[in-house]
Protein backbone atom coordinates (compact mmCIF):
# COMPACT_ATOMS: atom_id res chain seq x y z
CA UNK A 1 0.00 0.00 0.00
CA UNK A 2 1.15 3.48 -0.78
CA UNK A 3 0.15 6.40 1.37
CA UNK A 4 0.47 9.94 0.26
CA UNK A 5 0.03 12.90 2.48
CA UNK A 6 -0.46 16.53 1.62
CA UNK A 7 1.31 16.42 -1.69
CA UNK A 8 1.87 19.79 -3.29
CA UNK A 9 3.79 20.70 -6.39
CA UNK A 10 4.30 23.93 -8.19
CA UNK A 11 6.21 24.92 -11.30
CA UNK A 12 7.68 28.41 -11.32
CA UNK A 13 5.30 29.57 -8.62
CA UNK A 14 2.26 28.13 -10.36
CA UNK A 15 0.49 25.60 -8.13
CA UNK A 16 -0.22 22.39 -9.99
CA UNK A 17 -1.08 20.12 -7.08
CA UNK A 18 -2.18 21.05 -3.59
CA UNK A 19 -2.99 19.09 -0.46
CA UNK A 20 -3.45 15.67 -2.03
CA UNK A 21 -3.67 12.88 0.51
CA UNK A 22 -4.85 9.34 0.09
CA UNK A 23 -4.09 5.67 0.07
CA UNK A 24 -3.51 3.30 -2.81
CA UNK A 25 -4.29 -0.27 -1.89
CA UNK A 26 -2.25 -3.35 -2.61
CA UNK A 27 -3.78 -5.83 -5.03
CA UNK A 28 -6.22 -3.26 -6.35
CA UNK A 29 -6.39 -1.01 -9.36
CA UNK A 30 -6.24 2.51 -8.00
CA UNK A 31 -7.34 5.03 -10.58
CA UNK A 32 -6.53 8.69 -10.76
CA UNK A 33 -8.94 10.46 -13.03
CA UNK A 34 -9.53 14.03 -14.08
CA UNK A 35 -9.54 16.15 -17.19
CA UNK A 36 -6.47 17.11 -19.14
CA UNK A 37 -3.96 19.32 -17.36
CA UNK A 38 -5.21 18.75 -13.81
CA UNK A 39 -1.91 17.33 -12.67
CA UNK A 40 -2.44 13.59 -12.93
CA UNK A 41 0.87 12.90 -14.61
CA UNK A 42 2.64 15.16 -12.17
CA UNK A 43 1.10 13.23 -9.28
CA UNK A 44 2.11 9.91 -10.76
CA UNK A 45 5.66 11.08 -11.23
CA UNK A 46 7.01 9.01 -8.39
CA UNK A 47 9.46 11.49 -7.05
CA UNK A 48 6.53 13.25 -5.49
CA UNK A 49 5.71 10.08 -3.64
CA UNK A 50 9.22 9.53 -2.44
CA UNK A 51 9.31 13.03 -1.10
CA UNK A 52 6.09 12.55 0.78
CA UNK A 53 6.36 8.99 1.94
CA UNK A 54 9.58 8.00 3.58
CA UNK A 55 8.92 4.33 3.03
CA UNK A 56 9.51 4.75 -0.69
CA UNK A 57 13.28 4.74 -0.72
CA UNK A 58 15.67 3.82 -3.45
CA UNK A 59 15.39 0.04 -2.99
CA UNK A 60 11.67 0.19 -3.42
CA UNK A 61 12.10 2.32 -6.48
CA UNK A 62 13.54 -0.70 -8.14
CA UNK A 63 10.26 -2.50 -7.57
CA UNK A 64 8.31 0.03 -9.57
CA UNK A 65 7.19 -0.66 -13.09
CA UNK A 66 6.17 2.50 -14.84
CA UNK A 67 4.35 3.05 -18.07
CA UNK A 68 4.85 6.60 -19.30
CA UNK A 69 2.21 8.57 -21.10
CA UNK A 70 4.25 8.71 -24.31
CA UNK A 71 5.72 5.23 -23.94
CA UNK A 72 9.23 6.58 -23.29
CA UNK A 73 10.87 3.74 -25.17
CA UNK A 74 14.60 4.06 -25.73
CA UNK A 75 14.84 4.88 -29.43
CA UNK A 76 18.30 3.47 -29.78
CA UNK A 77 17.23 0.00 -28.65
CA UNK A 78 15.03 -2.61 -30.30
CA UNK A 79 11.67 -3.48 -28.77
CA UNK A 80 13.19 -6.62 -27.29
CA UNK A 81 16.13 -4.72 -25.77
CA UNK A 82 13.73 -2.12 -24.40
CA UNK A 83 11.74 -4.73 -22.56
CA UNK A 84 14.91 -6.47 -21.41
CA UNK A 85 16.41 -3.27 -20.04
CA UNK A 86 14.99 -3.51 -16.49
CA UNK A 87 16.18 -7.13 -16.29
CA UNK A 88 19.66 -6.15 -17.45
CA UNK A 89 19.88 -3.44 -14.86
CA UNK A 90 17.98 -4.81 -11.92
CA UNK A 91 18.50 -8.56 -12.00
CA UNK A 92 21.24 -11.11 -12.37
CA UNK A 93 19.22 -13.40 -14.63
CA UNK A 94 20.93 -15.51 -17.26
CA UNK A 95 20.59 -14.39 -20.89
CA UNK A 96 18.23 -17.26 -21.83
CA UNK A 97 16.05 -16.60 -18.81
CA UNK A 98 15.86 -12.96 -19.76
CA UNK A 99 14.96 -13.75 -23.34
CA UNK A 100 12.28 -16.14 -22.17
CA UNK A 101 10.80 -13.59 -19.80
CA UNK A 102 10.87 -10.89 -22.49
CA UNK A 103 9.19 -13.19 -24.99
CA UNK A 104 6.54 -14.01 -22.41
CA UNK A 105 5.81 -10.35 -21.70
CA UNK A 106 5.72 -9.42 -25.35
CA UNK A 107 3.31 -12.26 -25.99
CA UNK A 108 1.17 -11.06 -23.13
CA UNK A 109 0.73 -7.68 -24.86
CA UNK A 110 0.27 -9.32 -28.25
CA UNK A 111 3.58 -8.29 -29.77
CA UNK A 112 5.41 -11.57 -30.07
CA UNK A 113 6.55 -10.73 -33.59
CA UNK A 114 7.75 -7.18 -33.03
CA UNK A 115 10.77 -7.94 -30.87
CA UNK A 116 13.36 -7.08 -33.49
CA UNK A 117 11.76 -3.79 -34.58
CA UNK A 118 12.98 -0.36 -33.53
CA UNK A 119 10.56 1.96 -31.68
CA UNK A 120 10.44 4.24 -34.72
CA UNK A 121 9.07 1.39 -36.79
CA UNK A 122 6.01 0.58 -34.70
CA UNK A 123 2.70 2.37 -34.23
CA UNK A 124 1.74 4.53 -31.26
CA UNK A 125 -0.46 1.86 -29.76
CA UNK A 126 2.25 -0.72 -30.16
CA UNK A 127 4.66 1.60 -28.34
CA UNK A 128 2.18 1.75 -25.47
CA UNK A 129 2.05 -2.01 -25.34
CA UNK A 130 5.83 -2.32 -25.41
CA UNK A 131 5.84 0.21 -22.56
CA UNK A 132 3.51 -2.05 -20.60
CA UNK A 133 5.65 -5.09 -21.33
CA UNK A 134 8.67 -3.18 -20.06
CA UNK A 135 6.79 -2.07 -16.96
CA UNK A 136 5.75 -5.59 -15.97
CA UNK A 137 8.83 -7.51 -17.05
CA UNK A 138 10.47 -7.45 -13.64
CA UNK A 139 7.30 -8.41 -11.71
CA UNK A 140 7.09 -5.06 -10.00
CA UNK A 141 5.46 -4.61 -6.62
CA UNK A 142 4.15 -1.25 -7.75
CA UNK A 143 2.76 -0.68 -11.20
CA UNK A 144 2.25 2.89 -12.32
CA UNK A 145 0.50 3.48 -15.63
CA UNK A 146 -0.01 6.88 -17.17
CA UNK A 147 -2.91 6.57 -19.58
CA UNK A 148 -2.28 2.99 -20.61
CA UNK A 149 -4.93 2.98 -23.30
CA UNK A 150 -4.97 6.44 -24.79
CA UNK A 151 -4.41 6.15 -28.52
CA UNK A 152 -5.55 2.55 -28.69
CA UNK A 153 -8.62 1.18 -30.38
CA UNK A 154 -11.51 0.17 -28.08
CA UNK A 155 -10.78 -3.54 -28.32
CA UNK A 156 -7.09 -3.24 -27.56
CA UNK A 157 -7.93 -0.77 -24.80
CA UNK A 158 -10.06 -3.35 -23.11
CA UNK A 159 -7.38 -5.98 -23.52
CA UNK A 160 -4.81 -3.66 -21.97
CA UNK A 161 -7.13 -2.81 -19.08
CA UNK A 162 -7.77 -6.47 -18.47
CA UNK A 163 -4.07 -7.17 -18.67
CA UNK A 164 -3.34 -4.58 -16.03
CA UNK A 165 -6.12 -5.95 -13.85
CA UNK A 166 -4.91 -9.52 -14.26
CA UNK A 167 -1.39 -8.57 -13.31
CA UNK A 168 -2.62 -6.61 -10.35
CA UNK A 169 -4.71 -9.44 -8.93
CA UNK A 170 -2.30 -12.20 -9.89
CA UNK A 171 0.84 -10.63 -8.45
CA UNK A 172 -0.87 -8.55 -5.80
CA UNK A 173 0.70 -5.35 -7.06
CA UNK A 174 -0.19 -1.89 -5.94
CA UNK A 175 -1.40 -0.48 -9.21
CA UNK A 176 -1.94 3.18 -9.98
CA UNK A 177 -3.56 4.04 -13.26
CA UNK A 178 -4.05 7.53 -14.59
CA UNK A 179 -6.84 7.73 -17.10
CA UNK A 180 -9.65 9.85 -18.43
CA UNK A 181 -11.38 7.03 -20.21
CA UNK A 182 -14.73 6.23 -18.56
CA UNK A 183 -14.66 2.72 -20.02
CA UNK A 184 -11.53 2.00 -18.03
CA UNK A 185 -12.99 3.63 -14.98
CA UNK A 186 -16.07 1.45 -15.05
CA UNK A 187 -14.03 -1.60 -15.99
CA UNK A 188 -11.20 -1.54 -13.52
CA UNK A 189 -11.82 1.20 -10.96
CA UNK A 190 -11.47 -0.51 -7.58
CA UNK A 191 -10.52 2.79 -6.00
CA UNK A 192 -10.92 6.05 -7.82
CA UNK A 193 -9.45 9.41 -6.98
CA UNK A 194 -10.86 12.36 -8.84
CA UNK A 195 -8.59 15.36 -9.34
CA UNK A 196 -9.85 18.74 -10.35
CA UNK A 197 -7.45 21.61 -10.97
CA UNK A 198 -4.80 20.16 -8.68
CA UNK A 199 -7.15 19.25 -5.83
CA UNK A 200 -8.68 15.97 -4.82
CA UNK A 201 -12.44 16.42 -5.03
CA UNK A 202 -13.69 12.90 -4.59
CA UNK A 203 -12.64 9.36 -3.83
CA UNK A 204 -14.53 6.09 -3.99
CA UNK A 205 -15.30 2.93 -5.95
CA UNK A 206 -16.77 2.57 -9.44
CA UNK A 207 -20.18 1.72 -8.01
CA UNK A 208 -20.46 5.08 -6.32
CA UNK A 209 -19.04 7.26 -9.05
CA UNK A 210 -22.33 7.83 -10.84
CA UNK A 211 -23.97 9.30 -7.76
CA UNK A 212 -21.12 11.13 -6.10
CA UNK A 213 -22.99 14.38 -5.74
CA UNK A 214 -19.91 16.32 -6.83
CA UNK A 215 -20.85 18.57 -9.72
CA UNK A 216 -17.45 18.65 -11.42
CA UNK A 217 -17.21 14.88 -11.26
CA UNK A 218 -20.71 14.48 -12.70
CA UNK A 219 -19.72 16.69 -15.59
CA UNK A 220 -16.64 14.56 -16.12
CA UNK A 221 -18.43 11.23 -15.84
CA UNK A 222 -21.43 12.11 -17.97
CA UNK A 223 -19.53 13.89 -20.70
CA UNK A 224 -19.56 10.48 -22.32
CA UNK A 225 -22.77 9.77 -24.29
CA UNK A 226 -23.09 6.18 -23.15
CA UNK A 227 -22.64 7.25 -19.57
CA UNK A 228 -25.25 9.96 -19.83
CA UNK A 229 -27.71 7.40 -21.17
CA UNK A 230 -26.99 5.28 -18.12
CA UNK A 231 -27.79 8.30 -16.01
CA UNK A 232 -31.12 8.66 -17.75
CA UNK A 233 -32.12 5.17 -16.64
Amino acid sequence: MIKIKDIAKSFDGKMVLEGISGEFEKGKCNLIIGSSGTGKSVLLNMRNFTDADHDMKAEIRREIGMLFQGGALFDSKTVEKNVMFPLDILTKMKPEEKRERVAFCLKRVGLENAGKKMPSEISGGMKKRVGIARAIVNNPAYLFCDEPNSGLDPQTSILIDELIQDITYEFNTTTLVVTHDMNSVMGMGDNIMYLYKGHKLWEGGKEEITHSGVKELDDFVFANKVMSKMRGK
Binding site: N45, M46, A58, E59, R61, R62, I64, M66, F68, Q69, G70, A72, L73, F74, D75, F85, P86, I89, L90, R134
Partner: peptide, 17 residues
Protein backbone atom coordinates in the same frame (compact mmCIF):
# COMPACT_ATOMS: atom_id res chain seq x y z
CA UNK B 1 17.56 16.50 -24.96
CA UNK B 2 15.29 14.20 -26.93
CA UNK B 3 15.58 11.54 -24.25
CA UNK B 4 14.59 14.14 -21.70
CA UNK B 5 11.49 15.44 -23.45
CA UNK B 6 10.25 11.98 -24.39
CA UNK B 7 10.60 10.85 -20.75
CA UNK B 8 13.31 8.31 -21.57
CA UNK B 9 15.49 9.82 -18.86
CA UNK B 10 12.62 9.48 -16.37
CA UNK B 11 12.22 5.88 -17.48
CA UNK B 12 15.86 5.25 -16.58
CA UNK B 13 15.48 7.04 -13.28
CA UNK B 14 12.34 5.15 -12.28
CA UNK B 15 14.43 2.00 -12.19
CA UNK B 16 16.55 3.62 -9.51
CA UNK B 17 19.48 4.22 -11.84
Amino acid sequence: GTMRITEQIDAVEVMGI
